[in-house]
Design a protein around this nucleic acid. Sequence first.
DNA 1: ACCGTATTCAGCGCG
DNA 2: TGAATACGGT
Length: 777
Amino acid sequence: MKEILDQLNPVQRQAVLETEGPVMVIAGAGSGKTRVLTFRVAYLLQKGVDPFNVLALTFTNKAAREMRERIVTLVGGREAANVAMGTFHSIFARVLRVEGHRMGFPNNFTIYDTDDSKRLIKQIVQEKGLDPKLYAPNIVLGRISSAKSNLISAAEYNNNAEFTGNDRQFNRPEIGNLYTAYQMRLLKAQSMDFDDILFYMSILLRDFPEVLIKYQHRYKYIMVDEYQDTNHAQYWIIKKLAANNENICVVGDDAQSIYAFRGANIHNILNFKRDYPDYKLIKLEQNYRSTQIIVNAANSIISKNKEQIHKNVWTSNEDGEKIVVLRAPTDNEEGMMVARSIFELKMSFQLPAKDFAILYRTNAQSRALEEALRKLNIPYRIYGGLSFYRRKEIKDILAYFRLVINNYDEDALRRCINYPARGIGDSSIEKAIVKASELGVPLWEVISSPVAAGLDIRSNIATTMMNFAYMIKSYSVQLGKADAYELARQITNSSGIQRDLQEDQTPEGVSRLENIEELLNAIKDFTEREVPLTGIETEGEKQRTLDVFLQDIVLLTDADEDEDDKEADKVTMMTIHAAKGLEFPMVYIVGLEENLFPNIQALNSRAELEEERRLFYVALTRAEKRAFLTFAETRYRHGTPSFSEQSRFISEIDENYLEIPHQRKRFANPHGFDSPELKSTTRQLSNFVYKEKPAPKRLERKAAPTPPPPKQDAFQGGTEVDYLQLIEGMNVIHERFGFGVILKIEGAGPNMKATVDFENHGHKQLLLKFAKLKIRQ
DNA sequence: ACCGTATTCAGCGCG
DNA sequence: TGAATACGGT
């Protein structure tokens, strides 16, 4: 235990040790937040807390998995396996499988992903004869999602002046009714969408006291990561669950809140204070990730925001290089500049490609960058995009699995009956849907007994329908007994999907077939896997049957595969949103232009602009060693060239931290990136790079006048100086930063902290307990 | 049932 | 520009 705690700085240690009562940890970028969370769980377990009593909620599955792995190395697998650890959705979906019957859901309910939901909405809009442009699935689902995230039911929606008023204003008065219809259809299909998982969870805790008490007693210790990105529903659930013990610890950073557009409520952080007046506030302010320059530049950006919790992020890392600003004439040349810069840095320092990341505001920007990297043969990978489980061929097969598990899953039924073609056309399905709605029964009832339902279709089609239903039923019978892999193989073979794709000899067809093989392999892996996903699997779920497999995967996304790719040495390209929580030695933030970043659509309100600024803050704080900011004077947007000005965010950085290579005015030239002064830009960059250091391996350079001590040393409790004697105005010496004057001293005891003006290093904040300052005579 | 052409639209996206 | 969908002809 002691060795665990020794790896933490005093504030981190406090965040780990304060296990009782409400705690809010405001964790600055790179301050070791994950470390604190994992150590906290490990500490609880070592203290003897039953792992069954611990609940840790994360933002992504990946975060949960990584945390569990780290806890396993800290305290061993036995204990860690039973901690409930996962996303809100994966944890509460499991609770709902056990308790959902109280609200009319069977334990095998289906979870609709966003595509499924949109398909259903599209269908309903069509049935109601509404204008599909006005009631675009995206918009309708967005409204419904926003309502659910705020725990507003369909009935309440229609009585909610804010929602209905807004809808009328945009000429969409039917959204409330669509919400009602959508929920009815989901219920009839025994399905929930992603938002329903949180919504129904809240209903469960609100309306069923015995359930509330059960889970309040179970989860005696609750931790929530990325608290700034939780929405109201999540906030409410947490509050309810924690109400009895109030052993709740939330961790977040208001400066990194970038998902308000999706319903995240930054005020949850403020509500915390209101809900738990006697809470403890712990601020992790020391950054271990980035150089002084990057940390200070990031601070100068975020200080432009009005809405923020005051904090003082600082680092004792080296100063580092200035942030390089690069201007390109066009978006393509911006790509070439970035590619060349990466190439040169790679070569001069023998850096692996995976040390580099290119971050952009919008996905559309990736193309020019890709082309440039390809030209220079720099390997790259793009994060995001369509995840494996959302590809058409995969969804087609999964639809069969879904239908076999839950015959009432209407979306799955419509998918399967259409593919592969079996002679049941659109018109027959339309008739069946109408009939089902007339009779008030699930579509499946009409399809499986068309004659009994009185469906007006030709008898051969009715026979085809019944055969289809019979086939599905024959699979359903095997569900609980058969091995998931065997059953999946059987379904792909005998449903005709395999045959259909084998006939397709085009490259796409071949790739689809490969994807299906990959899916089957994943199922095989699953049958052999024992590692828990969330730690709260029931006995039934521990069996590796097909329905258990399916329950998991709808809640998984991209980041959960590509194991081999992860290790590959490639430049990472992704949106800034996707980069949250990651770090790279070298970071390029591209497209820093007004109207692109900050995005034009975010310029209407201060709140939105501030979110853009936080996004920029997140981008910059991903960088460990060096950051590059690039922009293009001309950029093709929607097919037409548009002129841009440099983003305001560049000017918001204190210019002391910026290196802006001189560039002469550019003359038109037909050779694109080979233009003379583009060369000069890159040459300048190289000069800049070469002169600084003699290219050692990696960037572990010790070029500073006095080599910095290894980071961790400061916390091994070395020789303690009598820092209590220090007063403001004193001249001091620091072993790394040299001569300086104490400007200010704050705090008391071990938290005593001084702002020192160093002759060669500017202002620094130092924790006196560790700074080992000497008094200069 | 399927294919080529016309049309439309364009921000970020966890689960 | 280019992806996604709607439409109209075979």
